[in-house]
Write a protein that binds this DNA or RNA. Structure first.
Length: 489
RNA sequence: GCCGCCUUAGCUCACUUGGUAGAGCGCCAGAUUGUGGCUCUGGAGGUAGCCGGUUCGAAACCUGCAGGCGGUACCA
C-alpha cells in the first residue's frame, strides 16, 4: 500500500465556499428562532406551507431555462427530460407558484408561513452564504394597507418574542416614484439608477450618494461606478427627501413628505397608504420606536410595488477580534402585487415579511460568543471493563426512561480520557459503576458543573484529584433522583 | 463580473539580500494502576495552495490557475 501513495487520490476535506457546517450550538439557536417565529405567525392566523427545494426554473422568475448561463444567481440543473429546474432562491417565488396552481381552492385572502433553506449562487461574504434559512409570512389576495400593517406588527411581535433588539423601517415605492416623476425623471433606466444610488446611503453617506445620482463615483479600489446622470438641480431634492426620516414620529414624517409630494398623484397615494398603515399599526400597539417611516429604504428593485419594510438590528456587533461587524438587515419585506400575475395574468395583491434566520442566528451567536451555548452533552457512563458493559447499558436505559439523556462511553481509552470526553461534551455529570460500586450496590456520580466551578479555587493537583470535587457515591436506588437534580439545577 | 491584498503544522503566526522550516495554542501520552481543570515531561503532526519557469540550489524571485480576505457591481 505504501507504494501507491503517489497514485492514490486524496480529496481535500473542505466544504464548498459559501456553505457551512453547523454544530449543535448553532443548530439550537436556529431552531429556537424558527419555533418562536412560527408560533407568532400562527398566533396571527398564518397556516404552515412547505414547498420543495427545487422548482422549474421558469417558475422562479427572471432566470429562464434557455438562458445562456442558467447557473447565474441560482443553482440550476437539467432534469432527465431536459427541463431546467433550480433550487429556490427565496420562499416567495414558490409561494406565487403554489398560489397560482391552487387559487380556486384556497381560502382568500390566503395567509401562509414557511421556513427552510434557500440557495443563491453568488459570491459569499461575511454574513452572506449561498445556503441560508428564511422564515416568511405572506398574505395573498388583500390590497388593503392594513395587510401591510399586519406584516409590520407581526415582525415587531416576532423580534420581541425572540428578545432581539430590532426596529422596522418602512417606506413606500409610490413615494419614490412620485418624487421622480415630479422631478421630471421618467426614463425607467434612470429611475432604477436613482433607486440604486439611494439604497447605498448607509454605506457611502450623502456625499457618495450625490455622486452616484449625478455623474458617477470612483471607489478606493479604483473601480468606477456610473451614476444616474441626474441634473444638478434634481440631486438636492432627492437627498432632502431621502433624509427626511430623521428622529421624527411617524405622522411627523408623513407631514414633512406631504409638502414635497404635493403635486404628485402617486406620491399622494403612497402617503395615504402609509397613513392607514400608521393607524392600524398604532392600534396594534406598535410604538414609535419599534417602527418608523424612512424614505431612504429601497429594497428589491423591479419587485416591490408599494410599501417596503426592512428590519435593522439595533445592537453594535463585534467579532472575536473586536472589529465592528456590518450586519445588514435581519429581515425585510413589502408589497409585491405583480408576482402571481406572472402565472395567471391576473393581478393579485400580495404582501409579506421574511425573517433572515441565518443572519439573526449569526448575530446572536456573536453576542453570546463568550458564554457556552445551550447545547449540553448527555450524562456519560464510564466504561471500566468489557465484562461489565451490560451493567452500563442497563443504567443508561434507566436514565433514558427517566428522561435524562445518557450514553455509555464507547471508545477504548482509559478513565482519564473518558472524563475528558465528558467534559468536552459539556456533560452535566459522569457516572461510575466500577468493581467497587458493583460489589456494594452503589453508583458514583460526579457533578461536572460543580467541579468546573470548584476547579478555579484549586491550584494543587493532588488536592484536585483526591478532593474529588462534586463526587458522591450512593445506593443505586437513589442514583437517578440525584442525577435528575444535577441536570435540572 | 471588476480592482487590490493574501495563501507556511488542526488554529494564530515566525524564519531580516534564495542554502530544502520553527514557536505559541490545540491534540495524544506519562507524572496521577479508577477520575475532567492547573503544572511539568515526552510525542505525533508540514510534498511551505497547485502547475510551470529562473537558479548549482526556491517557502522566498517570475507566469498561470485555484482558494481566502477586503472593496465595488449585481442581489429576487
Amino acid at each position: 500500500m505504501t507504494q501507491n501513495n503517489e497514485t492514490t487520490f486524496r480529496p481535500e476535506a473542505r466544504s464548498p465556499r459559501g456553505f457551512i457546517d453547523k454544530r449543535s450550538g448553532q443548530i439550537a439557536i436556529e431552531r429556537r428562532l424558527i419555533e418562536t417565529v412560527s408560533k407568532v405567525y400562527e398566533d396571527f392566523g398564518f397556516e404552515a406551507l412547505q414547498t420543495p427545494a427545487f422548482e422549474y426554473a421558469d417558475a422562479l422568475g427572471k432566470f429562464l431555462p434557455d438562458s445562456d448561463r442558467p447557473n447565474v444567481g441560482v443553482f440550476a440543473q437539467q432534469d432527465d427530460d431536459d427541463q431546467w429546474m433550480a433550487l429556490r432562491y427565496d420562499l416567495t417565488a414558490p409561494l406565487a407558484r403554489f398560489v397560482a396552481q391552487n387559487w380556486e381552492t384556497l381560502p382568500k385572502p390566503f395567509r401562509r408561513y414557511a421556513f427552510g433553506p434557500v440557495w443563491r449562487n453568488e459570491k459569499p461574504g461575511p454574513g452572506r452564504l449561498r445556503e441560508f434559512m428564511q422564515c416568511d409570512a405572506d398574505i395573498i389576495g388583500s390590497d388593503r394597507p392594513e395587510a401591510d400593517a399586519e406584516m409590520i406588527a407581526l415582525a415587531v411581535a416576532g423580534y420581541k418574542a425572540l428578545d432581539v433588539p430590532a426596529r422596522i423601517r418602512i417606506n413606500n415605492r409610490k413615494l419614490l416614484n412620485g418624487l421622480l416623476v415630479s422631478l421630471g425623471v421618467t426614463d425607467s433606466g434612470q429611475q432604477l439608477g436613482v433607486l440604486r444610488a439611494i439604497d447605498k446611503m448607509d454605506r457611502f453617506g450623502p456625499e457618495g450618494v450625490a455622486l452616484l445620482l449625478g455623474a458617477g463615483r470612483k471607489d478606493e479600489s479604483g473601480d468606477y461606478t456610473k451614476g444616474a446622470q441626474l441634473p444638478d438641480a434634481a440631486i438636492q431634492p432627492v437627498l432632502d427627501f431621502v433624509l427626511a426620516g430623521g428622529a421624527d414620529t411617524r405622522s411627523g414624517v408623513l407631514e414633512k413628505l406631504a409638502a414635497v409630494l404635493a403635486n404628485s398623484a402617486e406620491g399622494q397615494a403612497g402617503l395615504e397608504d402609509l397613513a392607514r398603515i400608521n393607524a392600524a399599526v398604532s392600534a396594534m400597539g406598535v410604538s414609535e420606536d419599534e417602527a418608523i417611516f424612512d424614505p431612504g429604504i429601497v429594497r428589491g428593485l423591479e419587485y416591490y410595488t408599494g410599501p417596503v419594510f426592512e428590519a435593522e438590528f439595533l445592537r453594535e456587533l463585534r467579532d472575536d477580534k473586536g472589529n465592528l461587524v456590518q450586519m445588514g438587515s435581519v429581515g425585510g419585506g413589502g408589497r409585491y402585487d405583480d408576482l402571481v400575475a406572472r402565472f395567471t395574468g391576473q393581478q393579485t395583491p400580495a404582501t409579506g415579511f421574511s425573517f433572515g434566520v441565518s443572519r439573526l442566528a449569526a448575530a446572536l451567536s456573536l453576542i453570546d460568543a463568550g458564554k457556552r451555548s445551550g447545547a449540553r452533552g448527555p450524562i456519560v457512563i464510564i466504561a471500566f471493563s468489557d465484562s461489565d458493559m451490560g451493567e452500563y447499558f442497563g443504567f443508561a436505559a434507566e436514565l433514558r426512561a427517566a428522561g435524562l439523556p445518557a450514553e455509555v462511553y464507547l471508545g477504548r481509552s482509559g478513565m482519564k480520557a473518558q472524563m475528558k470526553y465528558a467534559d468536552r461534551r459539556f456533560s452535566p455529570a459522569a457516572v461510575m459503576i466500577g468493581e467497587d460500586e458493583l460489589k456494594s450496590g452503589t453508583v458514583t456520580i460526579k457533578d461536572l458543573d460543580l467541579g468546573r466551578d470548584l476547579a478555579m479555587q484549586i491550584s494543587d493537583n493532588k488536592a484536585w484529584r483526591e478532593g474529588r470535587p462534586g463526587q458522591v457515591t450512593l445506593p443505586r436506588a437513589e442514583a437517578v433522583k440525584h442525577l435528575k437534580s444535577i441536570v435540572e439545577s
